[in-house]
Nucleic acid binder design. Structure first.
Ligand SMILES: [Zn+2]
Ligand SMILES: [Zn+2]
Ligand SMILES: [Zn+2]
Ligand SMILES: [Zn+2]
Lengths: 145, 145
DNA sequence: GCTGTTATGTTATAACGTAACAAGATGGGA
DNA sequence: TCCCATCTTGTTACGTTATAACATAACAGC
């Protein structure tokens, strides 16, 4: 896919960050580059998500750049492990899960478009007391585990 | 667990609804019963979630009353199938998934507290064109599949 | 030129969530 | 009884996240 200027900027900001960024954190990061208003960020995020280049981590209300190459098919599952203390996030590869979802989806769904799995807990570093506490602001400081 | 008056009200509102309600929809539903401000609803929701009586559907930013009896253990997984068109939701029973999560959590997490799986797509009714479109407001009209 | 389409841009507002404080209730111990 | 600690409940105000609505620019094809 051909990215527009704004989409490039947003993707680049997410790639630089070491943890998920809220849309407004992206906005702040891009103010120096002329990005001024929420809709610009949200529109770019929407396209990037559609292209599979960015995911939204639902339980955080934040966005990450994808480091994988998904099939981009409708049945790809997006899975994240999240440390609830320091905010570290890891995108998991769980293709095998996707297959079982058709059966798991119970009686309701006729077709599946999108699946997400989010597992939260404490990372090894936080259990050892070696991580900084969750950074509330956009600062990119993440956890070294 | 012993529920307080407000918790009873909130739980009851969620049980009556045929689809997930946002916190503010709960608030609106309970205005006639003297509930006036967001923190009351959020505090009740927090307790109810802790007791496993209510879940938050992350991708909708909305809450549902649980119809199951979970183990309430920390490793219970909450799974939902969601129709993205009409808003119908079904809570799935996926205990077997929970077991595999320890392995799936990759290198990051040392311990798991909470897991959520959300599968969205189109329900049978929407595929057939038999469902009403998603109701934006609190109206309880859901999908008959 | 004109027209349709896509991308940008701005303002304002809706929707979701929480911090901080005030007021009442409860329950000892001096 | 009175004071004080503590817990719960309630309210105001605020912070954060997301979108509606409208306006403009840029470009392609005719
Ligand atoms: Zn990915
Ligand atoms: Zn951590
Ligand atoms: Zn449940
Ligand atoms: Zn439907």
């Amino acid at each position: 896919m051909e990215l527009t200027t704004q989409q490039e900027k947003v993707l680049s900001a997410l790639r630089k960050a070491k943890k998920p960024l809220s849309a407004y954190a992206v906005l702040d990061a891009l103010r120096t580059q002329g990005v001024r208003s929420p809709p610009i960020v949200y529109r770019a995020l929407e396209k990037l998500q559609g292209a599979g280049l960015v995911h939204r981590v639902e339980s955080l209300g934040a966005f990450v750049a994808c480091r994988h190459t998904h099939g981009k098919g409708p049945d790809g599952i997006h899975a994240f492990a999240i440390c609830s203390q320091c905010g570290a996030v890891e995108e998991l590869c769980a293709p095998s899960l996707a297959k079982s979802l058709g059966r798991k989806s119970g009686g309701l769904l006729a077709e599946i478009n999108h699946s997400m799995l989010e597992i939260s807990g404490l990372c090894h570093g936080c259990v050892r007391g070696a991580c900084a506490k969750k950074n509330t602001k956009k600062g990119s400081g993440a956890c070294s585990q």
